Computed example of a mutant assay.
Amino acid sequence: MALIVICVGALCLALFVGSRIKRARARRELEEHSIEPETLHELLTVNQKLRVFDVRQPLDLLAYSELIPGATRIPPKEVLANPLLIPREEDAVVYCTCPDDKTSREILQRALSLNFSRVKVLRGGLAAWKAKGYPVVPYRDAFRLDTEI
């Protein structure tokens, strides 16, 4: 009986340590591939080759029908299904409005798993951009309210 308790304890400890390592790795990865709103704003004023992608969920887009100027709207479901919608050979930034940039992180992880190296996540998404007083433009194209990822 004692051996079973020890084995179960060891297994629980291993799972706990493994999950902590995985979270730390994900945080480092996100840190390495994040960009602050100020930095993005500076880059956009001098670098026309930087591509920006709005990957917000449809309901978020409905609530805030605006984009960062020059951004291309791509539904997250489409990007996750076809990551090549984001160019592999160009600098790109994705943003959303999810808490902790959840959708952007999912897209980043998918892109990195396919060896994309030039994609970044806008830290804080559209809300952080707007909080700095940076411009937005109205989004007027029709879109579907399909909320599945």
Score class of each variant (00 low, 15 high):
110 R>F: 07
12 C>N: 08
37 P>G: 08
93 V>Q: 01
27 R>V: 02
97 T>W: 05
11 L>Y: 07
92 A>K: 00
85 L>E: 13
76 P>Q: 03
98 C>P: 07
33 H>I: 07
38 E>Y: 07
6 I>Y: 14
37 P>I: 04
19 S>C: 01
68 I>G: 01
129 W>A: 07
26 A>W: 10
106 E>M: 15
120 K>W: 02
31 E>G: 04
95 Y>I: 01
4 I>T: 12
130 K>S: 10
45 T>K: 06
37 P>D: 00
5 V>Q: 14
42 E>G: 00
14 A>E: 01
104 S>W: 04
34 S>K: 00
136 V>M: 05
103 T>L: 13
27 R>Y: 01
58 P>E: 11
72 T>V: 08
82 N>D: 14
141 D>N: 14
59 L>W: 13
84 L>W: 08
52 V>M: 01
28 R>Q: 11
80 L>V: 14
117 S>M: 09
9 G>L: 10
87 P>R: 10
30 L>H: 02
141 D>V: 06
48 Q>F: 00
115 N>G: 03
40 L>V: 12
117 S>N: 11
129 W>Y: 09
48 Q>S: 15
63 A>E: 08
95 Y>C: 07
35 I>T: 11
90 E>R: 02
136 V>E: 03
136 V>W: 01
112 L>N: 04
114 L>E: 09
91 D>P: 05
23 R>C: 06
64 Y>F: 09
69 P>E: 09
116 F>K: 01
93 V>F: 03
8 V>H: 04
129 W>E: 12
85 L>I: 02
137 V>L: 13
121 V>T: 04
77 K>L: 14
11 L>N: 03
75 P>C: 12
70 G>V: 07
71 A>H: 05
98 C>K: 04
78 E>W: 05
75 P>V: 13
81 A>W: 04
134 Y>C: 13
138 P>E: 01
70 G>H: 06
127 A>H: 03
78 E>V: 06
101 D>Y: 14
105 R>N: 03
64 Y>C: 08
24 A>E: 14
6 I>N: 14
33 H>M: 06
14 A>F: 12
49 K>H: 02
71 A>G: 07
87 P>M: 08
91 D>I: 02
56 R>F: 07
118 R>H: 07
14 A>C: 15
101 D>L: 08
133 G>L: 11
44 L>C: 07
58 P>T: 06
59 L>A: 09
119 V>Q: 05
80 L>K: 06
70 G>R: 05
116 F>W: 13
26 A>G: 00
122 L>D: 06
115 N>K: 14
59 L>M: 09
119 V>A: 10
91 D>C: 03
104 S>G: 13
59 L>D: 08
57 Q>P: 00
52 V>D: 13
55 V>M: 07
119 V>F: 01
113 S>F: 15
130 K>T: 12
25 R>A: 11
53 F>I: 00
67 L>Y: 04
108 L>C: 06
106 E>D: 05
91 D>H: 11
45 T>H: 08
134 Y>A: 07
62 L>S: 02
70 G>N: 12
47 N>V: 04
105 R>D: 06
98 C>E: 15
123 R>G: 04
134 Y>I: 08
141 D>S: 11
87 P>C: 06
30 L>E: 00
5 V>W: 10
120 K>R: 15
53 F>V: 05
100 D>C: 01
